[in-house]
Amino acid sequence: MLRKAVASILMLAAFAYMQPALAHAPGAKGAPPHGGCKVQVGDRVALYGTSDDPDVFIWDSRFRMRDYEGGSFDQMRALLPHATLAPAGTRATVEACVDNFVQSKYLSTPDDAVGVVVTSGPLRGKRGWVVGDAIRVIWSHH
C-alpha cells in the first residue's frame, strides 16, 4: 500500500516536473490542444516507426531527437545513450505536442515532436519524446 502510494507520488512529481517544461517550450501545446499537431493531449496512441525498423526511439529531449533526425551516422550513434528503444506497438498517452519541431534535410516536411508517457510493456510509465511520424492514434477523447 505504501509502495503504491509512493509510486503514485513519484509519478505525480515527475508529471509536475515535466509539465512546466512542456508548457514553456516554444510551440508547445498544453491542454486544450490546438493547431497543427496531428495528435492532441490525452490521445491514446501506439508507437510504430515508418522506417524498415518499426521500433521507436523515445528521447529524453526533443532537441536531441531533432539532432538525431538531422545528424550524421556518428552524431546519431553518439546520441543513443539518450534514447530508449520501444518495441513497435507500444501503447502511450500524448502529454504534449510541438508542431513542426523536427526539421531535417532528410525529411520532405517538418514533423511534430510529441511528448508521451508509455502505458504498456516493459517501459510502462516512461516519459519522453517521439517523432510525430511514429505515432498512431488508437483512441481520442476529442
Binding site: S51, D52, D53, D55, F57, F73, M76, R77, L80, L85
Partner: peptide, 11 residues
C-alpha cells in the same frame, strides 16, 4: 537493437 536501428535509419 538501438545501434541496429541507427544503421537502419541512416540506410
Amino acid at each position: 537493437d538501438k545501434e541496429n536501428k541507427v544503421f537502419t535509419d541512416v540506410e
